[in-house]
Protein backbone atom coordinates (compact mmCIF):
# COMPACT_ATOMS: atom_id res chain seq x y z
CA UNK A 1 0.00 0.00 0.00
CA UNK A 2 1.13 3.49 -0.75
CA UNK A 3 0.80 6.16 1.89
CA UNK A 4 -0.69 9.37 0.57
CA UNK A 5 -1.86 12.64 1.92
CA UNK A 6 -5.61 13.13 1.96
CA UNK A 7 -5.52 15.47 -1.02
CA UNK A 8 -3.49 13.10 -3.15
CA UNK A 9 -5.68 10.17 -2.25
CA UNK A 10 -8.73 12.00 -3.47
CA UNK A 11 -7.14 12.29 -6.86
CA UNK A 12 -5.70 8.83 -7.07
CA UNK A 13 -8.49 6.62 -5.82
CA UNK A 14 -10.11 6.43 -9.20
CA UNK A 15 -7.47 7.33 -11.75
CA UNK A 16 -9.88 7.26 -14.68
CA UNK A 17 -11.96 9.97 -13.10
CA UNK A 18 -9.18 11.91 -11.45
CA UNK A 19 -10.07 15.09 -13.29
CA UNK A 20 -13.50 15.10 -11.73
CA UNK A 21 -12.96 16.63 -8.32
CA UNK A 22 -15.43 16.27 -5.48
CA UNK A 23 -17.46 19.34 -4.53
CA UNK A 24 -15.88 21.66 -1.94
CA UNK A 25 -18.56 20.72 0.61
CA UNK A 26 -17.70 17.02 0.25
CA UNK A 27 -13.99 17.71 0.36
CA UNK A 28 -14.51 19.66 3.59
CA UNK A 29 -16.49 16.78 5.06
CA UNK A 30 -13.72 14.35 4.10
CA UNK A 31 -11.15 16.69 5.63
CA UNK A 32 -13.23 16.93 8.81
CA UNK A 33 -13.13 13.17 9.24
CA UNK A 34 -9.54 12.62 8.13
CA UNK A 35 -7.98 15.54 9.98
CA UNK A 36 -4.21 15.33 9.78
CA UNK A 37 -4.10 11.56 9.59
CA UNK A 38 -2.64 9.55 6.72
CA UNK A 39 -5.02 8.24 4.07
CA UNK A 40 -4.17 4.87 2.55
CA UNK A 41 -5.36 3.57 -0.75
CA UNK A 42 -6.95 0.14 -1.05
CA UNK A 43 -8.20 -2.26 1.54
CA UNK A 44 -11.69 -0.80 1.45
CA UNK A 45 -14.56 -1.59 -0.87
CA UNK A 46 -17.63 0.53 -1.49
CA UNK A 47 -20.25 -1.48 -3.32
CA UNK A 48 -23.16 0.22 -5.04
CA UNK A 49 -24.92 -0.60 -8.29
CA UNK A 50 -23.29 1.17 -11.23
CA UNK A 51 -26.77 2.23 -12.28
CA UNK A 52 -29.44 2.68 -9.62
CA UNK A 53 -32.81 1.06 -10.23
CA UNK A 54 -34.55 3.58 -8.01
CA UNK A 55 -32.91 6.66 -6.49
CA UNK A 56 -35.09 6.27 -3.39
CA UNK A 57 -33.57 2.91 -2.50
CA UNK A 58 -30.04 2.25 -3.64
CA UNK A 59 -28.30 -0.73 -2.01
CA UNK A 60 -25.00 0.23 -0.41
CA UNK A 61 -22.42 -2.10 1.12
CA UNK A 62 -19.01 -1.34 2.57
CA UNK A 63 -16.26 -3.72 3.59
CA UNK A 64 -12.77 -3.13 4.91
CA UNK A 65 -9.92 -5.64 5.03
CA UNK A 66 -9.13 -6.11 8.70
CA UNK A 67 -8.43 -8.97 11.13
CA UNK A 68 -10.89 -7.26 13.53
CA UNK A 69 -8.82 -8.05 16.63
CA UNK A 70 -8.60 -5.92 19.78
CA UNK A 71 -5.30 -4.51 18.61
CA UNK A 72 -6.13 -4.11 14.92
CA UNK A 73 -9.67 -3.33 13.84
CA UNK A 74 -11.87 -0.91 12.01
CA UNK A 75 -13.62 1.50 14.33
CA UNK A 76 -15.87 3.35 11.87
CA UNK A 77 -16.82 3.75 8.23
CA UNK A 78 -18.36 7.04 7.10
CA UNK A 79 -20.29 7.32 3.82
CA UNK A 80 -20.70 10.63 1.98
CA UNK A 81 -22.76 11.48 -1.12
CA UNK A 82 -21.21 14.22 -3.27
CA UNK A 83 -24.39 15.69 -4.74
CA UNK A 84 -27.15 15.00 -2.20
CA UNK A 85 -28.70 17.92 -0.25
CA UNK A 86 -26.52 16.79 2.68
CA UNK A 87 -23.20 15.05 2.12
CA UNK A 88 -23.52 12.83 5.20
CA UNK A 89 -25.26 9.51 4.54
CA UNK A 90 -24.36 7.16 7.38
CA UNK A 91 -21.64 6.12 9.80
CA UNK A 92 -21.14 2.48 10.76
CA UNK A 93 -19.27 1.86 14.04
CA UNK A 94 -17.66 -1.54 14.51
CA UNK A 95 -16.14 -3.52 17.39
CA UNK A 96 -13.89 -6.58 17.27
CA UNK A 97 -17.01 -8.63 18.13
CA UNK A 98 -18.21 -8.04 14.56
CA UNK A 99 -15.55 -10.43 13.24
CA UNK A 100 -15.54 -8.63 9.90
CA UNK A 101 -15.75 -4.96 8.98
CA UNK A 102 -18.69 -4.86 6.63
CA UNK A 103 -22.23 -3.53 6.59
CA UNK A 104 -25.03 -2.80 4.20
CA UNK A 105 -28.07 -0.55 3.99
CA UNK A 106 -30.18 1.29 1.39
CA UNK A 107 -29.88 4.96 0.60
CA UNK A 108 -31.40 7.82 -1.37
CA UNK A 109 -29.55 9.49 -4.23
CA UNK A 110 -31.10 12.51 -5.90
CA UNK A 111 -28.97 12.40 -9.02
CA UNK A 112 -25.96 10.75 -10.64
CA UNK A 113 -22.99 11.31 -8.37
CA UNK A 114 -19.98 9.89 -6.58
CA UNK A 115 -20.12 8.22 -3.17
CA UNK A 116 -17.17 8.25 -0.82
CA UNK A 117 -16.47 5.84 2.04
CA UNK A 118 -13.84 6.60 4.67
CA UNK A 119 -12.72 3.95 7.14
CA UNK A 120 -11.04 4.78 10.45
CA UNK A 121 -8.79 2.06 11.88
CA UNK A 122 -7.67 1.44 15.42
CA UNK A 123 -4.07 2.19 14.44
CA UNK A 124 -5.06 5.72 13.49
CA UNK A 125 -4.92 5.15 9.74
CA UNK A 126 -7.68 6.10 7.34
CA UNK A 127 -8.75 4.44 4.11
CA UNK A 128 -10.90 5.85 1.35
CA UNK A 129 -12.97 4.49 -1.53
CA UNK A 130 -15.03 6.25 -4.16
CA UNK A 131 -17.65 5.05 -6.64
CA UNK A 132 -19.98 6.64 -9.16
CA UNK A 133 -23.67 5.76 -9.16
CA UNK A 134 -25.79 6.69 -12.14
CA UNK A 135 -29.34 7.65 -11.35
CA UNK A 136 -30.88 7.34 -14.79
CA UNK A 137 -34.17 8.72 -16.05
CA UNK A 138 -34.96 5.61 -18.02
CA UNK A 139 -33.34 3.27 -20.45
CA UNK A 140 -34.26 1.81 -23.76
CA UNK A 141 -32.29 -1.40 -23.60
CA UNK A 142 -33.44 -4.64 -24.99
Amino acid sequence: MIALTAATAMLSVLPARAEEALRPRTRAAVQGIVGDRTVREGGITLRLPAIAENGNSVPLAISVDSPMTESDHVTAVHVLADANPLAEVATFRFTPACGRAEASTRIRLGETQDLVAIAELSDGSVRLARQEVKVTIGGCGG
Binding site: A16, I51, K134, T136, G139, C140, G141
Partner: peptide, 25 residues
Amino acid sequence: KEMLEDVADNLFHADPFYQQGGDMV
Protein backbone atom coordinates in the same frame (compact mmCIF):
# COMPACT_ATOMS: atom_id res chain seq x y z
CA LYS B 1 -31.94 16.81 -24.92
CA GLU B 2 -31.60 15.52 -21.35
CA MET B 3 -33.45 12.32 -22.26
CA LEU B 4 -31.27 11.73 -25.33
CA GLU B 5 -28.12 12.43 -23.32
CA ASP B 6 -29.24 10.02 -20.62
CA VAL B 7 -29.87 7.22 -23.09
CA ALA B 8 -26.59 7.97 -24.89
CA ASP B 9 -24.72 7.70 -21.58
CA ASN B 10 -26.36 4.32 -20.94
CA LEU B 11 -24.89 3.15 -24.26
CA PHE B 12 -21.57 4.96 -24.52
CA HIS B 13 -20.29 5.27 -20.94
CA ALA B 14 -16.58 4.46 -20.97
CA ASP B 15 -17.03 1.77 -18.27
CA PRO B 16 -18.95 -1.29 -19.54
CA PHE B 17 -20.48 -1.74 -16.08
CA TYR B 18 -22.47 1.41 -16.81
CA GLN B 19 -23.60 0.32 -20.29
CA GLN B 20 -27.08 -1.11 -20.72
CA GLY B 21 -26.45 -2.69 -24.09
CA GLY B 22 -29.29 -1.63 -26.37
CA ASP B 23 -29.16 0.72 -29.31
CA MET B 24 -29.76 4.48 -29.32
CA VAL B 25 -33.39 5.52 -28.84
